[in-house]
Design a protein around this nucleic acid. Structure first.
Lengths: 115, 115
DNA sequence: TTTACATATTCGAAAAAACATATATACTAA
DNA sequence: TTAGTATATATGTTTTTTCGAATATGTAAA
């Protein structure tokens, strides 16, 4: 059960919507990757992700020093559809941000520093 | 072209989201019908509908003293999908409001007074 | 043209959301 | 243990949103 108004408040902010779209497209992202892609401060990203986690839209997982966020697979079907369609139809909205996205998983030589 | 953040701000308020869902389900509703269904004041309904009109989500049409609001048929496909899925999946969210909905079109004997 | 009804808009106050800054926690490697 | 990196949270402030109340506009009927 999810409150539709609360869900849409999650999407009604540029930082959160871009984070969600990029996570939808990439599968999983950590805070420092989002900081680099969105060019925003750490507390700002962290605060918005905390909100998405509290509303059960995202799940988090720690791996070493990093905390990765992903979509909650138990979301209702209609919510998954909304998120998928939104990401698919708004790739240009995050195009410049995706350019600045460096995936740490793609660079195992960097064991101890983010982007 | 529609700004996805602005679009989701439209959905991020109980009055607006319920209005949109009911309009999606009913096809077209006027202000006084929404007032009765949502049990809210006239300026409040009117103000929220004005916002939805400004953002091109709704179109309005005057018929006599009443102004009917309907979905803008020229919205992008992904937006229409989001609205349709949201309405379909959240009928219980507006169930009590639909109970209080009196469609003036169904009562042609009332030529000069709303619900 | 007066009266009633439907809707829109304005304006100031209240509530909510977002922010920057500072600080706390947690993990890693030396 | 210490230093460095990543993330979270607390706090006070600013911005945005929402609201109620009053008022204005437009239509219809008498």
């Amino acid at each position: 059960m999810i409150d539709p108004v609360a869900f849409y408040k999650c999407l009604a902010d540029e930082t959160r919507l871009k984070s969600l779209i990029m996570i939808q497209l990439e599968g999983e992202l950590c805070v420092c990757e989002l900081m680099a892609a969105l060019d925003e401060t750490q507390p700002k990203i962290s605060r918005h992700l905390a909100l998405l986690r509290q509303d059960q839209v995202l799940l988090d997982r720690r791996q070493g020093q990093w905390i990765y966020y992903r979509l909650n697979p138990d979301l209702p079907e209609w919510v998954k559809t909304v998120l998928a369609k939104t990401a698919e139809a708004n790739k240009t909205f995050v195009a410049n941000n995706l350019k600045n996205l460096c995936r740490m998983g793609d660079r195992p030589e960097r064991k101890n520093a983010c982007c």
